[in-house]
């Protein structure tokens, strides 16, 4: 029990109650911290992680009802289980606590057996919610998970200004035919690990992974200051890391790996598409199509990163850009100005 003990915060303005609850909680194998009123509790919750709150109602400065309301309004604390421990009179007060999101109500003086059961069940709920959040983050990136937590899930999109990055491994089909499936998966895992690192450290999210191709968005669901610069920096970071990996492979007598990336910037429609049962966060629009075309064109133009005019306009002066003239792409009525960027910006 001591090993899976929880971190509990006891909020009570009465010293005897704080001592007694702490003792009871510690005897159950948990760690107890104490706060004298709601305001102090909220300050502690902002700086330390807790698994469960034991909350009194009658308190000076900020009472238990106000604490429950403040927790509800704070996305990071919304799921923290709260057990109200009070000798407050009247059924309506207990009902009000539950309506405000309290997990449970324990009358004071707190019965030891009931306390044990309620605390275990509260901690188990917290564990499940944490696990759920972790799963969501694994499959949906932390930005999308945060967006879901804050705004809830709704099919539908909104127009945002963003940069879209498409990237794939050059000659991946030939590469995968020459190697064992295990070796191919190994290469993909390294590639994905480096991509996620480069993209998320520059404020983007990966929205699509198909084989060796991936798509990332910068500017949705959370806005970034300069989507174009972020997307280009991510592509350059990724190329640098992949070329280190490629050099290692070549030194071991294996085939080198090259990437191609296309970046376009403009308005996209971003949101959840699919059904209520299965949906994905995605972006659509001509900006997305253009980024995909640019990525394909890197093979023809024999360069590694190609960007459109809108992306170029957003870049800082110290990024060296080489104009590549105009290209007509399938699905685009007018020719498009494109530029290439060195993978590493020296």
């Amino acid at each position: 029990m001591a090993n899976d003990g929880g971190r509990l915060l006891i909020v009570d303005d009465n010293k005897v109650n704080r001592l007694l609850l702490s003792r009871n909680v510690e005897l159950l194998g948990h760690r107890a911290s104490v706060a004298e009123n709601g305001r102090i509790a909220m300050e502690m919750l902002a700086t330390e992680p807790f698994d469960l709150l034991l909350l009194d109602i009658e308190m000076p400065e900020m009472d238990g009802f106000e604490v429950l309301e403040a927790l509800k309004a704070e996305p990071a604390l919304r799921d923290l289980p709260v057990i109200v421990t009070s000798s407050v009179e009247g059924l309506d007060n207990i009902v009000r606590c539950i309506e405000l999101g309290a997990e449970d109500y324990l009358p004071k003086p707190v019965n030891k057996v009931l306390l044990k059961a309620r605390v275990s069940s509260g901690l188990e709920k917290k564990r499940l919610r944490d696990e759920q959040k972790e799963l969501l983050r694994r499959f949906a990136t932390s930005e999308v998970a945060q967006d879901l937590e804050e705004s809830g899930f709704a099919i539908g999109g909104q127009r945002v200004y963003a940069s879209v990055l498409f990237c794939d491994i050059r000659g991946f089909t030939a590469l995968s035919e020459d190697q064992s499936p295990e070796a191919v998966i190994e290469v993909l895992n390294v590639y994905y690990a480096l991509s996620f690192e480069a993209i998320s450290s520059n404020g983007g999210i990966v929205t699509l992974m198909i084989g060796d191709g991936l798509m990332a968005v910068f500017g949705a669901p959370q806005a970034v200051e300069n989507p174009a610069q972020s997307a280009v920096s991510a592509a350059q970071n990724l190329m640098e890391m992949m070329s280190d990996f490629s050099r290692e492979r070549v030194a071991n007598g294996e085939a080198g790996i090259r990437l191609g990336a296309g970046i376009a910037t403009g308005e996209v429609v971003a949101g959840y598409a699919g059904t209520d049962q299965r949906a994905t966060y995605t972006c659509i629009g001509t900006t997305v199509n253009l980024a995909a075309r640019l990525e394909t064109h890197t093979k023809t133009a024999d360069c590694e990163i190609l960007i459109d005019e809108e992306t170029r306009a957003g870049l800082s002066d110290d990024v060296s850009v080489r104009p590549m003239g105009q290209v007509s792409f399938k699905g685009f009525s007018a020719p498009v100005d494109i530029s290439s960027i060195n993978p590493a910006d020296e």
């Binding site: 009465n14 005897v16 109650n17 007694l20 009658e58 000798s87 004071k108 003086p109």
Partner: peptide, 9 residues
């Protein structure tokens, strides 16, 4: 309320 709560303990 506080006195009641402690007396009960």
């Amino acid at each position: 309320h506080s006195i009641k709560s402690n007396a009960n303990v």
